[in-house]
Amino acid sequence: MKQPYHRVGRARFGFAGDVGKVAEARRKPLKRPAQPRARATVKAIYEAFVRILCRDGWDRVTTRNVAAEAGIAVGTLYDYFPNRLALLSGYERHAIDELLDRIEVDVITAAGTWRERLGLLVRLTANPKPADLPYFDRTMLLIENEYAEPKHHRRAYEELLGAWKRAVAACTDLPRRPADHEVEAAFSAALGARRYVVLAEPRHFDRKRWLADIEAMCMWLLAGEVAAN
C-alpha cells in the first residue's frame, strides 16, 4: 500500500526503535522517479517483475533476475528498490495509483450517463483480472503482510473510497443521491469481493457473470436500480 519513499538512514547501535525503522524502511522503495527517463526505467522494472512472477513464481523474483529481465544494471535497480519486498511494495502502490487515475479520467471527469460511469467504476474496482490495469494475483496478496502495515491498507482504502465518493457526486443525473454509508458499502463490496476472489481462486468461476452480478448489487446500493446486463 502507499508508503513514503525515502533513503535508509544509518541505525544507531543499541536503539531497537531505530533498528525497527530501518527494517521497515527496507521494505519501501527508496525514491519516486521524477524524470521521464527514471519513470521509464521503473516501468521496465515493474514489467520485468510481473513477467518473472507469472512465468517462474515468487521464488525466482530476485533483484538480479529482475534487473537482467529488464535489461538494466542491478545497481540501477538498487537506486529505487533495496530488495524484492520493496519492489513489490512499490508495484502495489503503482497499481493503486493507476486505478485512481482511471477513476479520475474515465469516471469522474468523463461524459456519459450515471449508469455508464458508475457501472465502469464498479468494474474497474471489482474486476479480478482487468486487461488494462496493472497485474495483480494471489501471490501478492499472500505476502502483503510482509511489507504492508494496517495503516497502509487504511490509507489505500480511504483514497479509493474518496475517489468513489467524488465519482458518485459527479453523476448529477442519478435518480437519487446515495448516503455516504451506501457508497462505502458498495465500494467495500466491490473491492473486498475482488480481493477474496483473487485469493481463493474459485473453480468453475464465471468471471463475466460474477462481475455483472457485483455491478448489479452495487448499482442497487448507489441508485436503487439494477444495471441492465
Rank of each mutant, 00 (worst) to 15 (best):
V42R: 03
V42Q: 04
K43C: 07
K43N: 10
K43R: 14
K43Q: 14
K43P: 02
K43Y: 08
K43L: 11
K43M: 08
A44E: 11
I45R: 01
I45E: 00
I45Q: 01
Y46H: 15
Y46L: 07
Y46W: 14
Y46T: 06
Y46R: 12
Y46M: 10
Y46G: 07
E47P: 00
E47K: 04
E47V: 01
E47H: 02
E47W: 00
A48G: 14
A48W: 05
A48S: 13
F49G: 08
V50W: 03
V50I: 14
V50Q: 03
V50S: 03
V50C: 05
R51W: 00
R51C: 00
R51Y: 00
R51Q: 03
I52Y: 09
I52M: 10
L53N: 12
L53S: 11
C54F: 00
C54I: 00
C54L: 07
C54D: 05
C54A: 06
R55V: 02
R55H: 09
R55N: 10
R55E: 12
R55Y: 04
R55G: 09
R55I: 02
D56Q: 15
D56R: 15
D56G: 10
D56P: 13
W58A: 12
W58R: 13
W58C: 05
W58M: 12
D59Y: 04
D59H: 06
D59V: 05
D59C: 03
R60V: 09
V61G: 07
T62G: 01
T62V: 05
T62I: 03
T62W: 04
T63W: 05
T63I: 13
T63E: 08
T63N: 09
R64K: 11
N65K: 03
V66I: 15
V66Q: 05
V66M: 07
A67T: 04
A67F: 04
A67E: 03
A67P: 08
A68N: 13
A68M: 12
E69V: 03
E69M: 11
A70E: 09
A70H: 08
A70C: 12
A70L: 11
G71F: 09
G71Y: 10
G71E: 10
G71H: 10
G71K: 11
I72T: 13
I72K: 13
I72V: 15
I72F: 14
I72L: 15
I72S: 13
A73G: 01
A73H: 08
A73Y: 01
A73I: 00
A73Q: 06
A73F: 00
A73C: 00
V74A: 01
V74C: 00
V74K: 01
V74R: 04
V74E: 02
V74I: 00
V74M: 00
G75D: 10
G75R: 06
G75Q: 09
G75C: 03
T76V: 15
T76H: 05
T76K: 12
L77K: 02
Y78I: 06
Y78R: 14
Y78C: 05
Y78W: 13
Y78H: 14
D79T: 09
D79I: 02
D79N: 12
Y80R: 06
Y80E: 04
Y80P: 07
